[in-house]
Design a protein around this nucleic acid. Structure first.
Length: 330
DNA sequence: TTGTGTTTTATTGCCTCC
DNA sequence: GGAGGCAATAAAACACAA
């Protein structure tokens, strides 16, 4: 048979009072023995004699359910093949309606849930008494309430993670933009310097190239420099082979071929140093010379995949795709 | 009034713990 | 093995727009 569970009145086909036939089924000698028989007589004699309300009946059976183990509905106790129980179920199936708890009951339960969302047996019985409900109903309410709380909590956690993600993403995008702006600025400054040097007649590109070629040839003969002239990222080489301070001091020693291949990493250092302080006129000129000679040198020595020609912008010896670290040259 | 989406109450099956 | 918890689900109750 189908187990209708805890029953409530209020359905359109149920007026809240059991019919005589329904009561007869329960109180008759054919009612399931062993389940109701012993309980009916002492507990319900007075109720059954009159016209017990639906709630009274339900409360009685609810108590039975809980006393009887509480886990499953009252009808689970019946023999599954019992025809009479089927008949009984048929009646009760009609009356199988849910009744919502009153606002006061819900308020009370909410308060209790706020204090502790787990329900000990004693508390369950106590709440049931105070609210006029079945302990099983209290347990179900807490169970459903925990489920709702969990769902809300998940939504809250999701929102929080989402916000954090959005913030991080926004910061990342700002950094990208800032990075791009700085690169553009560096490019324009380098361009200006190039034009300025050219205008002053201080720059003879042919001489500069000759000088750079000579330096490059010497460098290739040097095993250390050979490594440095490859596409190994400059900073890696620098940190592996030199300490930072000596590298920096050697950078501008353009007379020393040994270190010419390393110059690009220090140029980067230098560029960003100059951004942080005002350049004197001398520094400015030295810097621009260094930049240009370095650009020429690297343009010769760099791998063909990453040419650094005056007509092409590229990174100093780095793949163009490597946008995370690089420096525009001209 | 009615159709539809949401909320609430309750059941079922499975799992864990004692 | 029983008690209780939880996820999934059913179904009644409710809210609300058309």
């Amino acid at each position: 048979m189908m187990a209708p569970g805890i029953l409530y009145g209020g359905a359109s086909n149920f007026d809240g009072v059991f019919t005589q036939k329904q009561r007869d089924v329960f109180s008759s000698s054919t009612a399931p023995k062993g389940h109701l028989g012993s309980l009916f007589a002492p507990a319900c004699s007075s109720n059954f004699l009159g016209s017990p309300s639906c709630v009274e009946w339900i409360q009685f059976y609810g108590q039975f359910c809980d006393v009887n183990g509480g886990k499953r509905s009252f009808f689970d106790s019946f023999d599954q093949d019992d025809n009479e129980a089927d008949e009984l179920g048929e009646y009760f199936h009609q009356a199988e309606k849910k009744r919502r708890l009153t606002d006061n009951q819900v308020q009370f339960l909410e308060k209790s849930f706020g204090e502790e969302n787990k329900l000990e047996p004693e508390r369950k019985v106590q709440l049931a008494k105070e609210l006029g409900l079945q302990p099983r109903q209290i347990a179900i309410w807490f169970q459903n309430r925990r489920a709702r709380w969990k769902t809300k909590q998940l939504e809250k956690d999701y929102d929080e993670l989402r916000n954090r993600y959005d913030t991080l993403k926004s910061n990342y995008n700002n950094l990208l933009k800032e990075n791009e702006d700085l690169r553009t600025e560096v490019f324009h400054l380098t361009d200006k310097l190039f034009v300025k040097e050219k205008g002053n007649g201080q720059l003879d590109l042919r001489d500069e190239n000759k000088h750079s070629d000579a330096l490059a040839k010497e460098t290739v003969a040097d095993p250390i420099s050979r490594v440095e002239m490859s596409n190994v990222p400059a900073l890696v080489v620098k940190h592996q082979q030199e300490d930072l301070s000596s590298a920096k001091s050697d950078v501008f020693d353009s007379e020393s071929p040994r270190y010419t291949g390393r110059v690009h990493s220090s140029v980067i250092d230098r560029v960003f140093e100059t951004e942080q302080s005002d350049l004197s006129q001398d520094d400015d000129e030295n810097f621009s010379k260094t930049m240009l000679s370095t650009a020429n040198l690297l343009g010769k020595a760099a791998d063909d995949d990453y040419p650094a020609t005056p007509s092409n912008m590229s990174y100093f010896g780095f793949p163009v795709e490597d946008q995370g670290f690089g420096f525009w040259t001209y």
